[in-house]
Simulated scan of single mutants.
Amino acid sequence: MNKLHFFILALGVFENTNGVSIEKDSIENAIKIEDAPFVAVVLEKNSKKTWYLASILSEYWLLSINGYLTTPGSNVTVWTGVDVLHSNGQEHVVDYIISQELTAKTDTNYTQVALIKLKKPIVFGDKQKPISLAEPHKKLKPGNKVKVFHYTNIYFSDRSTDEKKPLKLSSLEIVSSEKCNSRLESYYKNNTDYSDDDKITITENNKMFCTEAVRRPCLPDFGSPAVFNGKLVGFSWFGLIPCGGYPILFNNINFYYNWVMEQVPELKKRSI
């Protein structure tokens, strides 16, 4: 797929109470990691380049999108308990990565998911806790609002820097597949560099769900967890610019639930 061209917001900075310079735009929705202790950051090893976000499922396992993650995972490191990106947190060594590759055209390579196994267990506390997966029978409906946790505002340009960015909370509303496809088709008409194979179509039974921004910022990191009623329902993987005019797509946990449970039997012991 051709690279998307993203619009970069012009942001000011301010000094927070800890003396860390962070974005002015993020004041209204910056939160503490204690409010989302399941959020983890996947960084390229020996650098500060952010690959993705992940969600803590247990003391050894995290869930994210696959993308450029490699097996056994020697190219990345995981950080938990991060209030401000590149400023604090606890580092973890990756043991290996299990990837589920999907080949159907309606899935595309972007919907691959990955389980990240750590070499040593996470010590749970106020800043590091697991989140449960939403039960498969509980379906999201248009109009539902999901909470999305992220650090950066835009995918490619923003995620490759080492700026100090606070954890943020955004609210996104689920939209119908019809509305989503209409918005996508409008985008493709104005961006002719997409081939038919590149174009995405959402169906009611797809492995994705579609959202639009209720408040800024509207494009979270790859793998940003989406939470509904306290359960993990998905993670972000695709978005378009300009903000507010086009949808943001999330992998739907419903379609990966059984696979995750098969790979991580210890999760079955918990009340999900």
Rank of each mutant, 00 (worst) to 15 (best):
E204G: 07
C210R: 11
N66F: 11
E163D: 14
E173H: 06
E266H: 08
L118T: 01
S74F: 09
I22N: 01
A104D: 13
N75W: 11
E173V: 14
N251A: 08
F156L: 15
D193N: 08
I272V: 06
K141E: 12
T192M: 07
Q100G: 07
G73N: 03
G244M: 08
K129E: 08
Y110M: 12
N29T: 07
D25N: 06
Y52C: 15
L69N: 02
R216P: 06
I200V: 11
K268C: 05
K147Q: 15
G12C: 05
G230W: 11
L53C: 11
K141V: 12
M1F: 00
D221S: 04
Q263I: 02
N205F: 02
E135F: 04
F209I: 03
V41C: 15
N16R: 11
M1Q: 00
I200H: 00
V214P: 07
V41Y: 14
K127Y: 15
T108E: 10
K147A: 15
Y188V: 08
P247C: 06
E135L: 09
E135M: 05
Q112R: 15
K105Q: 11
T77N: 12
L184M: 05
E135A: 07
K48L: 10
G239V: 04
A104F: 05
L62C: 09
P247V: 05
I98P: 00
Y246E: 11
S176L: 03
T161H: 05
V84E: 09
